[in-house]
């Protein structure tokens, strides 16, 4: 069997694997939540499963004048976008789809989230949802440009947009060591496009849940799960970009990719509790006046190092 067919067959398990990882992330988040409220960790661990069962039994709801088509596309799309992101991530030397422009592919998929979150907000025909959708776009305008330049840094380091090349260029030294600013901006952007942590205004409690305010039943489940899947996909993508991909002792490369991804997810879940929510209009100035020059300097430093050194460190 040639590698394309094998890759396509393996890709069938990808959505399930990503869903399991998302469930783990949700369980970890719920454990921290229940610990903070003085409940047992076990209660937290089963909370996502219980919530899934509850939502599956709950009746689907719609609103008068809702644009159901766009609303459902937005809801189902998050999980799809997450799977499409993981498609190009190398697990060791194996990759589901070895695109020569894998990095740009990831960027295109994260732009897809602009559309999906806004459609979720628009489709419901509800004021709170609409506020959430617009908040996400306003926030996206701030994080997307720094994210694009942060993605440029590993590409400059490896001299390639292909993820296998980027991963292999880190044989000597992981990119996170000499591109820390790019990694921080990337990590913040992952948190932002998942509407998570300090960047969760699109789904914020102050707007009654924002884009998820009117969702119920399986639609709500798809969005909540999709959000965790996007978060996991973003964490997993950082591994070939900044953490040497599958490199590591004893274990096979694919296991290392999964271990590193889950460790990053744990960081994101912790970070949610460390920072206050940041309003999009405040983020704009921080992102464009402070972060943009920082990440441009990072790319310039990476480029100079590559030229002087004749390649990645």
């Amino acid at each position: 069997m040639d590698s394309t067919v094998t890759g396509a067959l393996w890709a069938l398990i990808l959505p399930f694997g990503l869903a399991v990882a998302a469930l783990l992330a949700a369980a970890g988040n719920a454990v921290l939540d229940s610990r903070a409220r003085g409940l047992s960790a076990t209660a937290g661990m089963v909370a996502p499963v219980r919530e899934t069962a509850r939502l599956l039994r709950q009746q689907r709801r719609t609103l008068p004048g809702a644009d159901s088509l766009l609303w459902r596309i937005g809801g189902a799309g998050l999980a799809v976008a997450a799977v499409l992101k993981v498609l190009v991530i190398p697990f060791g030397n194996f990759t589901f789809a070895d695109l020569p422009t894998g990095l740009v592919w990831f960027n295109a998929m994260d732009v897809l989230l602009w559309a999906l979150w806004w459609l979720l907000g628009w489709g419901a025909n509800s004021g709170w949802s609409l506020v959430g959708g617009y908040r996400f776009l306003a926030q996206a305008l701030s994080y997307e440009l720094p994210l694009m330049f942060a993605l440029t840094a590993p590409a400059v380091g490896a001299g390639s947009l292909r993820l296998l090349d980027i991963q292999d260029a880190q044989d000597g030294l992981w990119f996170v060591v000499w591109m820390p600013a790019a990694f921080l901006v990337y990590a913040a952007s992952v948190v932002a496009f998942s509407s998570w942590g300090p960047f969760q205004t699109a789904t914020g409690r102050d707007a009654a849940g924002g884009v998820i305010a009117e969702l119920s039943g399986v639609d709500r489940l798809l969005v909540l799960a999709g959000r965790y899947m996007v978060l996991v996909a973003g964490a997993a993508f950082a591994v070939p970009l900044f953490f040497g991909g599958g490199s590591g002792p004893w274990l096979p490369g694919s296991v290392w990719v999964i271990v590193k991804s889950l460790a990053l997810v744990a960081v994101f879940i912790t970070a949610r509790r460390l920072f206050p929510t940041l309003r999009p209009e405040r983020l704009a100035e921080i992102a464009l006046v402070l972060v943009m020059p920082l990440v441009l300097i990072q790319v310039a430093v990476a480029a100079v190092i590559v030229v002087v050194n004749g390649g990645a460190l």
Partner: peptide, 21 residues
Amino acid sequence: LDYIGVITILMMVMEMAIMAV
């Protein structure tokens, strides 16, 4: 033209998201 194709998708989805607003 992989790069140009993917960039077209990226730019156009972004543009339409803003244009809708």
